[in-house]
Simulated assay, not measured.
Amino acid sequence: MLHILLIYLLPIFHPFYVSVTEITQDPKTKTVQVSVRVFFDDFEKALDHQYKERVNILKPADRKKVDLRIADYLKKHLQIKVNQQPVVFKYLGYEIEEDAAWCYFETAALPAIKNIEIKNDVLFAEHESQSNMIHVTVNGKRKSTKLDNPKNSVSLVF
């Protein structure tokens, strides 16, 4: 009985840390859309730590400044190579959905993805138990993986 009780109470005393990154190449435009979902409270702490000032994602006093911080942080902690070439992202913005921030990026048109290398260490400096889920969709084919801190990179072939 005590074991069952501990199973239900463990998440209360030991929170989990996870982000989800979706990467999709649009078959018509050949652009790559990237979205990153991260718990906004953990993200704010990471931004506070990185930039040495308080960042409020929910009610920003200066939305442009928060957008710049988010874009800079994610460009440093999420890097992608397509067919061995580094990819440049354009930050599109973020939105809040329940307890998470969704951050959006897009690339210019790229050649068909044959292989993709992803380095994702989002929130690794803040949480030893951070896991980053990654879903990549190319030509309707979806591949998924999970990076557990400290493992921060993966290569996928399509």
Rank of each mutant, 00 (worst) to 15 (best):
L47I: 05
Q50N: 00
E53A: 08
Q33E: 12
A46I: 03
T24R: 08
P27W: 07
T31Y: 01
Y51M: 06
D42T: 03
F16K: 14
E44G: 03
S19W: 07
K52D: 09
V36A: 07
K45G: 00
S19Y: 06
V38S: 12
T31K: 15
V38C: 10
K28L: 13
F43E: 02
H14N: 15
K45H: 09
K28P: 00
V36N: 05
D41W: 05
E44H: 02
V32G: 03
S35W: 06
E53W: 01
E22C: 06
D41E: 12
S35K: 12
E22L: 14
D48R: 04
A46R: 01
A46Q: 03
H14M: 15
A46K: 02
T31Q: 15
T21G: 10
E53V: 08
V32N: 04
V36K: 03
L47W: 03
T24C: 04
E44W: 02
F40L: 14
K28E: 14
K28R: 13
S35I: 07
V32M: 13
F39N: 10
D42N: 11
Y51P: 02
D41N: 11
L47E: 04
T29N: 09
P27H: 09
Q50Y: 02
T29V: 06
Q33D: 14
D41F: 05
L47N: 04
T21K: 05
V36S: 09
K30G: 01
S19A: 14
K45D: 11
D42P: 03
K52Y: 02
T21E: 07
F16W: 10
Q25P: 08
T24I: 14
D42S: 06
Q33S: 15
L47V: 07
F16Y: 14
S35T: 15
V34G: 02
V18N: 08
